[in-house]
Structure formats: C-alpha cells, structure tokens
Amino acid sequence: MDLEYLRNKIIKLVEEKGHPRELGALVADNLGSENTMIRMIGYLSHSQPQSTEEIADEMLAICEDRDNWRKKKEAEFYQQKYNQYLWEMKK
C-alpha cells in the first residue's frame, strides 16, 4: 500500500472522530511504516477515542510494539550468529 494513502486515511479518521487534522498528521508521521499505520487505522475504525490523549496513547503503544519487535529480531539475529560461531569452533 502507498504510505501517502495510509497517512491520508489516518488524518481522515481522526477528523471524523472530531479531533484536529494536525493530530492525524502527527500520528501518521510518527508511525512511519505501513504495518503500524494499518494497526492505527484499525484502532480508529473500531473505537471511539474520547480525547486526543487516547489517540496519542494508542500511537505510542503501537510504536513501542514495533520497537520491541525490532529489538527481538535483532537479538535473534545476533544469537544465531553467536551460535554459528560456537558451532564452527567445535569443528
């Protein structure tokens, strides 16, 4: 999917919920990736956030999940490299 399309969809949904357009733009820009934007669109489509803080909290939670996933994948990559090194040392 096109990131600009997803960005505009988030902005539109935020506006439909009665919040400022600028909030939608900030949220979309901070999410940055297709997967995180799709998650936010899902949240906005199926919930009725009462405040801008609720939207910001969800954005932060999504970003935290993304960062934790990246750290996990990085740790797995280096663990695999280390295991390979140990295996080669045994030979």
Rank of each mutant, 00 (worst) to 15 (best):
M1V: 06
D2Y: 06
D2C: 08
L3K: 14
E4R: 09
Y5I: 07
Y5P: 04
L6M: 04
L6T: 01
L6A: 06
R7Q: 11
R7S: 07
N8Q: 11
N8A: 07
K9C: 05
I10S: 00
I10R: 01
I11Y: 01
K12I: 06
V14P: 00
V14F: 00
E15L: 07
G18W: 00
G18C: 01
H19T: 02
H19I: 03
H19K: 15
H19C: 06
P20I: 10
P20D: 12
R21D: 05
E22V: 03
E22R: 15
G24N: 07
A25S: 13
V27C: 03
V27H: 02
V27Q: 03
A28M: 04
A28I: 03
D29R: 15
L31D: 00
G32S: 06
S33F: 07
S33I: 07
E34Q: 12
E34W: 02
N35K: 13
N35D: 09
T36G: 04
M37A: 04
M37C: 04
M37V: 03
M37K: 01
M37D: 01
M37T: 01
R39A: 07
M40R: 00
M40G: 01
M40Q: 01
M40W: 00
I41A: 03
I41Y: 00
Y43E: 08
L44P: 02
L44A: 02
S45C: 09
S45M: 10
H46T: 15
S47F: 00
Q48R: 13
Q50K: 14
S51D: 13
S51N: 11
E53D: 14
E53K: 15
E54Y: 05
I55R: 02
I55M: 02
A56Y: 02
A56T: 05
D57W: 12
D57E: 14
D57F: 10
E58R: 12
M59W: 00
L60G: 04
L60V: 05
A61W: 11
I62D: 03
I62V: 11
E64R: 15
N68L: 13
N68K: 13
W69C: 05
R70F: 13
R70C: 06
K71T: 08
K72V: 08
K73N: 11
K73F: 12
E74C: 04
E74W: 08
A75D: 10
A75R: 09
A75V: 12
A75K: 09
E76R: 13
E76P: 06
E76G: 05
F77A: 08
F77C: 06
Y78Q: 01
Q79N: 12
Q79T: 14
Q79M: 09
Q79D: 10
Q80H: 13
K81T: 05
K81E: 09
K81N: 05
Y82N: 07
Y82E: 02
Y82G: 02
N83K: 15
Q84A: 12
Y85Q: 08
Y85D: 04
Y85E: 04
W87I: 05
W87D: 14
W87P: 04
E88P: 03
M89T: 10
M89F: 09
K91Q: 15
K91I: 07
